[in-house]
């Protein structure tokens, strides 16, 4: 899987690439508007991470260029701008997702995972993992072909874990995934445990072997 990171902050681009490298992703970098244009013209990427404020131009222009050339690359905007208007503008031009800085790498990895799945499998987007079967479109989960009723939040958590296999996800990242923007305003993150406990119980009850490990004091890890 090829990923293009269009980001002028080298450190951030590097960190993203390190985090993603375990997962068979191959990362390339573009630091300026011009570099980015050159790369998207020549190569195809499974997913492009696009910063909007670039030296040399507006990131949205790159997105427009992609659409003009009718490229099917998945695009996730990663931007410091996080107002609703910015998000709507980005998604309207054709971005697949929008993630405001600062974000957790686990969140980014899960989004990349989803975008690539959506692009590759289209209508029959089913993830099979051991005894687990997840239908991304219908948002249903089967364990040993038996349906498990997960709440929306539990389903989102499951996707976050699947998108970050073998990596530690911090409580903070889980809280942000569960309550979005307001996570940092909640001083009590106990609700994270409650949701994970419920999700785990439902899956275990249906016969799934426990792949989700608690990393004491830090977070959780899905071992596969």
């Amino acid at each position: 899987m090829k990923i293009l990171i269009i980001e002028d902050e080298k450190e951030l681009a590097y960190n993203i690439s390190v985090y993603l490298s375990d997962e068979n992703y191959l990362c390339e970098f573009a630091e300026t508007f011009q570099q980015a244009l050159e790369k998207i013209e020549v190569y195809h990427y499974d997913c492009i991470l696009l910063d909007l404020m670039l030296p040399g131009g507006d990131g949205l222009k790159i997105l427009e260029e992609l659409k003009k050339q009718d490229k099917q690359d998945g695009v996730i905007i990663i931007s410091a701008k996080d107002s609703l208007q910015d998000k709507i503008a980005g998604l309207q031009i054709g971005a697949d997702d929008y993630l405001a800085k600062p974000f957790h790498l686990s969140e980014l990895a899960a989004r990349i995972y989803s975008v690539i799945r959506r692009k590759q499998f289209g209508n029959s987007n089913i993830i099979k993992l051991h005894e687990l079967q997840i239908d991304l479109l219908a948002k249903t989960v089967l364990v040993n072909n038996e349906p498990v009723m997960l709440t929306k939040k539990e389903f989102d958590l499951l996707l976050l874990f699947i998108g970050n296999k073998n990596r530690v996800i911090s409580k903070s990242a889980l809280a942000e995934n569960l309550s979005g923007d307001i996570a940092d305003m909640l001083d009590n993150h106990d609700f994270v445990y409650a949701h994970i406990k419920n999700m785990k119980k439902k899956l275990v009850d249906a016969g799934y072997q426990n792949y989700l490990k608690t990393i004491y004091g830090t977070g959780y890890k899905w071992e596969a």
């Binding site: 985090y19 600062p102 790498l105 830090t218």
Partner: peptide, 27 residues
């Protein structure tokens, strides 16, 4: 400020993946 914060956050996420960390360090 958002960008350096994003760098910092990503560094923490990376650091957490280190398997040689003690429990104390992880916390």
């Amino acid at each position: 400020l958002q960008t350096p914060l994003a760098v910092l956050k990503s560094k923490i996420d990376l650091l957490m993946q280190n398997e040689s960390l003690t429990e104390n360090q992880s916390e």
